[in-house]
Design a binder for these strands. Structure first.
Length: 267
DNA sequence: GGTAATGTTAGACT
DNA sequence: TAGTCTAACATTAC
């Protein structure tokens, strides 16, 4: 789940529930997922303090802690979530895969859920100096059309699917949303960026913004509020193109990931 | 039991 | 040199 729009949801959840509450304890079922610090120091540094602010960069959530220089970077890997709930609340469903828990003095806790353990938590002084952040491309929702087109044109050859997913080119877009953006733009994921004409680049920009903004508004894409014209809900179900029942979606490995697209609509 | 899964990356290959 | 491909990471669900 955790691509840009999903992490944006996590941010809202964090902001609404976790700021300015005193941390009373930190627990970790998987201590090795916390990096750049030994767990005991992590726990020691946070206990008695509170989260001051939280921001998003690409697929990262970065929390500022009052009174200390280090910040906490949450990355979710391919599976992950955040859940603020009562400490005694049973760990059902996803919560079974809680790997790190931040307990607050008010009896509630924040659960960092990470089923596949591909996620990481970094504890560092200047997050912007971490390679992952330092080498990251611009935020798609902060780019103007001109900047986006320049970004593509100043790049050497590469297929468009790889371009959208590569965090060093543009931040926060992963497999699911790159597929949706390309579907909406009717561009075949194999296309080399050098073959895109001006009109296509403009449309790509427009659809990228629309898809990401809509996804932030409605929440998880598998949900019932997913727009009728989106391809996302079909990728795990009937594999039918939402534009035409006779179009069958195709699955193919591109850039090491399974791309889903409509060979009839996307050229 | 086999396979695929919303991410990232190192190393081999082209 | 730069882009692509594959495997690896750890785990679960179907």
């Amino acid at each position: 789940m955790p691509e840009l729009p999903d992490v944006e949801q996590f941010k809202k959840h964090f902001e609404k529930n976790c700021l300015h509450k005193k941390i009373s304890d930190v627990k970790a079922e998987s201590k090795n997922l916390i990096r750049r610090v030994v767990f005991e120091d992590f726990k020691e540094s946070l206990t008695g303090h509170h989260f001051k602010s939280v921001r998003r960069r690409g697929k990262f959530l970065i929390a500022e802690v009052e009174g200390i220089e280090e910040e906490i970077l949450f990355h979710f890997g391919m599976t992950g979530n955040l859940h603020y709930t009562k400490q005694e609340a049973p760990k059902e469903d996803e919560d079974k895969f809680t790997r790190v828990t931040f307990e607050f003095k008010n009896g509630y806790e924040l659960r960092w859920i990470n089923m596949r353990k591909f996620g990481r938590i970094y504890f560092v002084k200047e997050p912007e100096k971490l390679d992952l952040i330092k080498e990251m491309g611009p935020e798609p929702l902060e780019l103007s059309e001109k900047e986006f087109i320049n970004l593509i044109e100043n790049h050497s050859r590469k297929n468009i699917k790889s371009f959208l997913m590569d965090q060093r080119d543009i931040a926060g877009i992963g497999n699911i949303y790159s597929d949706e953006i390309l579907f909406q733009t009717r561009i075949d994921p194999h296309r080399d960026i050098k073959t895109l004409n001006y009109e296509e680049k403009k449309n790509l920009y427009k659809n990228m913004k629309e898809v990401l903004e809509e996804a932030i508004k409605i929440g998880p894409p598998e949900g019932e509020f997913s727009p009728q014209h989106w391809m996302i809900p079909h990728r795990h179900q009937d594999m039918k193109c939402p534009r035409d029942d006779n179009h069958h979606l195709k699955k193919k490995t591109i850039a090491g990931r399974s791309a889903i697209y409509c060979p009839k609509c996307q050229q």
